[in-house]
Amino acid sequence: MPNVGGWRFVVLGVVIAVMLVLPLVVKSSFAVDILIRVLLFSFIGSAWNLMGGYAKQLSLGHAAFFGLGAYTSTLLQIDFGISPWIGMVAGGFVALLASLPIGWLCFRLRGPYFTIATIATAQVLMLIFLKFRDFAWGAEGTTIPNLGHAPLMMQFETKAPYYYIVLGLLTIALLITARIERSRIGYYCVAIGEDEDAAEAIGVDAPSVKRQIYMISAFLTALAGTFYTQYIYFIDPQTAFNFNISIEAALVSIVGGVGTLWGPVIGTVLLETTSALLQSWLGNSIGGVQLTVYAVILMAVILWRPTGIMGYLAEVYARRRSKSLSLPAKA
């Protein structure tokens, strides 16, 4: 009997193979679009999860970093002709730097007031970009000049390349998460999330750890902003700093299971599948259906399965293992 670790690699291998061939098999561009959305929000959710899930710093302001990433690469591209590939990384660093003053402000608060402060900072950023039109096109936003097939400028004529880009981003985020989970900073984050005083008492510099994880989370979120703008060829403050991005980042993680590697991915698959099904069933005519369903799912998870889907699976697994306790742990 192969041990658990062995099974895990088999499953992972199959998943990777399927993900790699998927765009070759799926021809409908509607379907590829949904796949891209799923990967994108899995990625954003994973970025949020580092801070919100492991360190339990429940931000509802990650749109700030998404927007900064989007605007940085777009400004560099349109004003200076710099490739979004470079702009994407630059955007990441802009967000990383921005997380320092934002964190300095918001980490003074704990609990719900931290959450409110993060909302406020994202809103202020959006309002600034709305207000100052000579700086970044104001409320009208701008379209990204379409260069046709231009891989170096992150522009493609089919959807498949976008799919692979965001798949790559998600892979990076998952690798980073897996690595953090096993290292000191991962333990420190979870400890802070559980009890900040107790963590301090055993030598955890909580402000510094929170700052670090916020920087990583902000950096990754900004990459998504650049990607999304390139994908839809358009940017304005309302899309780039949309509150729904902050919400969904948190939502997919909570539903899937905060503080778990795969939670955001599972959560996104569930939420986006539900929403795609609803859309094909009801059409786009009625506003609010999608978020209504999200709200119901979120509420159900909080009331009945606060540890999310992954947490639930872990419980089931633990229960089954304790039943077969007589077996040695390692076969």
Partner: peptide
Amino acid sequence: LIRRVLGLNDLPQIFLTFALSLLIVNLSLM
């Protein structure tokens, strides 16, 4: 609703009323 999350940690406490807000807004939109 609220009675069920009292004494739990921040996450359910914050996101329960947040979900409620989301629900009411979007139901009203519909």
